[in-house]
Structure formats: structure tokens, C-alpha cells
Design a protein around this nucleic acid. Structure first.
Lengths: 347, 347
DNA sequence: TTGAAAGCGCTACCAA
DNA sequence: TTGGTAGCGCTTTCAA
């Protein structure tokens, strides 16, 4: 026989019926030890591998979890993925992964494609899906997680933290440290980056308001905090961080005394460039980042950054999907996993 | 109607037969424009999504490409993945990805699992599969790529470069620069790392032999090159690079004048640690790495490193799989993509 | 604990 | 260009 063996072949060899073989594969404990042994031996002998498509069709369970991330090159999503894989492991689930390159339209297409696999659940990054994508997902009848970021209008399950609050908190940290001419370096400007920028602006606005109130009458100009915002749609890289630092220095006529980088890649690039410009850090220039990458803690000085539980978010996403899929009627209000500011020498 | 619409529903609504709808989905050009339009409208109206399992079962084509990498956290494999995804895009293929954590046994299990999806092809990292895994793959009757590394006994298609040659070439570079007390810092010690180490040893052995021949009679000890090898099975990280540098300095009683790190993470860590030890680079200590990460070019001094075409390897793997799957009888001898040494300030 | 029959939703094959 | 028929390999349901 040359074709691949199927259930029936195994059954014949083992001297049982096909369904018994099927049971050995899915509920081994519901089969008598004797039969099970015979079946297992037949499987080994034939090198039988169960046909997933047939199994999925008959059982209406695909055993597939779909995941869409915005970028394969950004290590941040790798950590989320690791969490997802670690949580998936004990359950018989395969992950199919899509990369939407930060594009909601690509994401929409991917969703349509991935849904045809009838996944048990779907994990998305961010909360900015197209209307059509939302509709597709609502009709799909499977648990959906929007990860990394919070929204008050989730499709289904929502796990993340407020990038606005994080951006605001980091800016407040810089203000508290006495920096008053603060630059914001932003690349790619995806929604989460924009929220960080909004938080940055709000913190400065609040500070200026509060400060004006105190010093009313006095010359306000010297007491104001001056924001310098430099952004680009280019995708983020270490190198770009150095370039953006030069831009902000040019724009501020060298007055900028701190930069808040929308991620740690930019921050590292800014740090390297600042060294070459002979700026002392943090005396001449403070540098803050976002994501708390390993390198940020190890460069000298260490870069102050925003940490968030990425691995745990990935795990939670899987767990909540499985809970929901198994019919638990728990209410999943948006789940805020929080963030923390890792203060280091750069600020 | 509450259940999900199927082909038949679409067919009825469009006033055609089921098979015509199927054709619209797979070979739209083989259907009259008029019918096609009706069908497409019906699909949109019902929000129909084709059942992949049924399609795969009936057609015996899964539309799935299986990929196994040793680590999700190592950015090196991300670049390979990006190549794979970019090549897969124009073809209707979904990627299912497994992470075997550098373990051949986990890899074997993953192979068995992934094969049940009847993938059109399978991409593996490295050439160190278990015997059972090899047997599974040989019986699977699908194109298999072993990527990243060369072997003279490939399972099927083999694309990569010689890590031995690269390790040797880098060491020769250090020797040519005049370094004589060279350390090798190795972490995780997967097969490719071991080949790099073997290349390191060979280069030094060759050099000592050649040198002995020239200076026969003279005091050989001062003319010998001294290798210091420090390895650990811990997984690689920037931080670990600093620790290993300290070990090699301790072991060599501070005599070590160059370190070849098995990857750039270690090299970065070594660089940061060397700075804190007030070592001038490359005067007091040369540092060489492997993989040519972005940061290696941007730190000061830049880290000399081995570059390889990772993105292109991923692409090629997909392309050769598709070629082979479509019956092209090309002979695929191991494909050496080569490497290059990026010389920078650190050496 | 085991088995027989039916059918999941789609596509290959052939015929019109 | 279109359609009818059959069947992919498995699991569900029900009965023994």
C-alpha cells in the first residue's frame, strides 16, 4: 500500500472499529486498556497521522488559534507571542499567525482569511479595526481578544493598558525631574504611539496650567514648559532615533533638555547619537523610552522606560479565550494590566 | 437562518450550483462574468466564509506551510520569518509556526503535530533533527527545507551557510589584526554555535601550526596564539555577555586581548561591561560578534560581526518549496548563501 | 466499552 | 461554461 494510512487502516490492523481508533486519539481514557494498546501499536506500525482537515470538518472544531500582530520585526510582539505560545501549549491548539504591517486594511483581509480556518479564537493587536472587520468578527461567533491597548468599545475581550496614561506619567516624571524643554520623538505613529503623544501633550498642558495659576502675574514665559514634537511615519529603528534627536535639536535651537522617545529603539539611537554630540546624560539631556527592552537597562546610563507585562498579556489572552469558548459566562470588562516606569540614569 | 451559511446557501441565493460557487472562489476566470457577479453578490450578502477544513479535505490541499524555529525571542529568526511571510504572501498559503525551544525532541513532537495539518511544505531550522523526525518527514512526501545551516546529508532541500567557515573566518580576522590571546564567549551552545566554536578552534590551530613551522627553533611559547573558551548552556542575552566577559578575563588572568562572541547580544553585553571595566576598545580588547544586528553597527565603537542573508533565506525556502511542490524536478543540492564579515571599530 | 450508520462542507471527475 | 454524483476521512449520535 502506498497511500497514506487512514483511520480505517489502523482499525483493521488493530482489529477494532474506526471509531475506537478515533477515541484512542481524543479520549484515550474512554477506551479499554487492551484495545488502546492494540490501537497504539497499529498507529506506530503504520506511521499513522490523523488528518486534521477531516477531523475538523467532522467535529466542527479546528483546534486553531488565530493571532494577528502588526509587525514581526518589533521584538515587543515577540514577547506577547511567547506568552501566547506558552499558554497554548497544554491545550491542543495550533497557532496561525498573521502580520498586518500596522495596516488596518491588511488586518481586515487577514481576518477574513484566518476566519476561514474557523479558529477557536482570535487575538488582535490594538483596538483600531475597520468597521467591516468588526462586523466579520461579531458574526464569527468566536471569542476575540483585542490586546495591548484599552478601549471602551471592545469587540469582545479587551486586555491592555492605557498608552495615554503611560505617556502622561512618563512626561510627568520628566517634569518632576525639572526638565522644561521636552521633546517627543515619534516614529511610525501607530495608534498606540499617538496615544502616548497625547498623554505627553496633556501632561505638559496640565503642568503649564497649574504653573500659570501659581505664578499669575509673574513673567509666564520663563515658567512655561516647552514641548517639541518630532514625528515621522517611517518605521522605528535605532538609527532613526539618532536622526530624530538631531531634528529635535535643530528645531529647538539646541534648547531641548529632555526627549521622550515613543519606544526604546529610538531611545537607544538617541543615546548613541547624544554621546557623539558630546552631550552629557542626564545633565545636558535626559532620555526616556518606552517598552523597557533588555538593552535599555544595560547601556550606560540606563534608559528610563515604561514596562508592561507583555508575556502575561499573551497568556491571559489565550486563557480568557479558552474560558469563554468553554462556555464560562464570566463578564470580561476591559482588563487593565497596568504599566510601570523604570527609572534609570538617563533621567 | 442562524447557522453559518455554506456553499449551498450561496448557490441557491445566486441561482447557480454549488460547484459554480466553488469555482468562483478558486478559479474565478473559469466562470462566466455574469454568474460570477451573481455569486459574488450572494457571498457578500450572506457574509459567507468558505470552510477551510472541508475544502482541504475534498481537495487534498491544505494551503498551509509549517515552520519550526528554535526560539521566538531570538530576533535572528524573526528576520527569517519575515522573509517567509513576504514570499508566502502572493500564494494562498497560511503559515503555522512552532517554537521548539532549541530542543530536537520538542521539534520532533512539533513535526508530528504539524504534519497532521498536511502542510504543503515544512521549513526547519538547522540540520539536527532526530532520526524519528527524519523518518516522519521522509514519509510525509512533502518538500522539506532545512534552513540556516548546511549539511551533506540533507533530508530534502537545504539552504544556509557554514557556521564553521564563518567562525573560522572571523577568528582569522582577529589573528590578522594581531590579537593572540583570544577568548570565545558562547551561550546556549546549539549546534550552529558549536560549529562556530569549532571554526574558532581550527583557525587558531592552523595559525599555531603555520607559525611553528616558520619559527621552528625559536621560543614557541611567545609566538603561540592562546584560546580561552568560556561557554554556558544558559540562553543568550546582553547581560550574559558581560558576565562571560568577566569569566574569560578571570580565566585568562586579564591576558585576554580579544573576544569572539557567538552572537551580537553577547557582544553588546561584553562591550558595555568592557566600558565599565575601563577597557579601551579595540586597543585593550577587541570584540567580535555574530549576526550583525542593527545595534552592532550603531554602538560606539561599532561591533565587527558576521552578516548573513536571513530574510533572503526565508524567501528562498518558500520559493523552492513551491517549485518542488509544483513538480519541478530541479535538483536542489545544498544551497550555500554565504556570509560576510562586517569589520567595524571594535576590532 | 464498543460499533454502525450518517453526514460534516467542499471539490474532483465526468458528462452535458 | 455549467452541473450531478460521489466521496475525501473523520466524528457524532444512537444503539447494543
Amino acid at each position: 500500500m502506498n497511500r497514506k494510512p487512514n483511520l480505517k487502516d489502523v482499525a483493521e490492523l488493530a482489529g477494532v472499529s474506526a471509531i475506537t481508533v478515533s477515541r484512542v486519539l481524543t479520549h484515550p481514557d474512554k477506551v479499554a486498556a487492551k484495545s488502546r494498546q492494540k490501537v497504539e501499536q497499529a498507529i506506530a506500525e503504520l506511521g499513522y497521522i490523523r488528518n486534521h482537515a477531516a477531523s475538523a470538518l467532522a467535529s466542527n472544531r479546528s483546534g486553531v488559534l488565530a493571532v494577528i500582530i502588526p509587525s514581526l520585526s518589533n521584538i515587543v510582539f515577540n514577547e506577547v507571542l511567547q506568552g501566547i505560545y506558552s499558554a497554548v501549549k497544554p491545550h491542543q491548539l495550533q497557532v496561525i499567525l498573521g502580520d498586518c504591517h500596522y495596516s488596518p486594511l491588511e488586518e481586515e483581509k487577514l481576518i477574513a482569511t484566518l476566519l476561514s480556518q474557523a479558529p477557536e479564537g482570535l487575538i488582535l493587536t490594538g483596538t483600531d479595526q475597520t468597521d467591516y472587520a468588526r462586523k466579520l468578527l461579531q458574526n464569527a461567533g468566536i471569542p476575540v481578544v483585542q490586546l495591548m491597548e484599552l478601549t471602551n468599545n471592545p469587540i469582545d475581550i479587551n486586555i491592555g493598558f492605557s498608552h495615554f496614561a503611560a505617556g502622561k506619567a512618563m512626561t510627568e516624571h520628566l517634569l518632576a525631574r525639572g526638565y522644561r524643554r521636552i521633546g517627543f520623538l515619534g516614529a511610525r505613529m501607530d495608534p498606540r504611539t499617538q496615544h502616548r503623544l497625547a498623554g505627553f501633550r496633556k501632561a505638559i498642558e496640565d503642568w503649564n496650567t497649574a504653573n500659570n495659576a501659581k505664578n499669575s502675574g509673574a513673567e509666564p514665559s520663563s515658567a512655561r514648559c516647552e514641548p517639541y514634537v518630532v514625528t515621522t511615519s517611517q518605521s522605528s529603528s535605532i538609527k532613526l532615533g539618532g536622526q530624530l534627536l538631531q531634528s529635535v535639536m535643530a528645531e529647538s535651537a539646541g534648547q531641548c533638555d529632555a526627549v521622550f522617545c515613543c519606544n526604546d529603539d529610538l531611545a537607544l539611537g538617541a543615546l548613541f547619537a547624544a554621546r557623539q554630540m558630546n552631550l552629557r546624560i542626564p545633565a545636558d539631556l535626559a532620555i526616556a523610552g518606552f517598552n523597557d527592552l533588555e538593552a535599555s537597562a544595560l547601556v550606560d546610563p540606563g534608559i528610563t522606560s515604561v514596562a508592561s507585562p507583555r508575556f502575561a498579556m499573551g497568556q491571559q489572552a489565550v486563557e480568557l479565550i479558552l474560558q469563554k469558548a468553554s462556555g464560562a459566562q464570566t463578564e470580561f470588562s476591559p482588563l487593565d494590566v497596568g504599566f510601570s516606569i523604570m527609572v534609570r540614569g538617563s533621567t
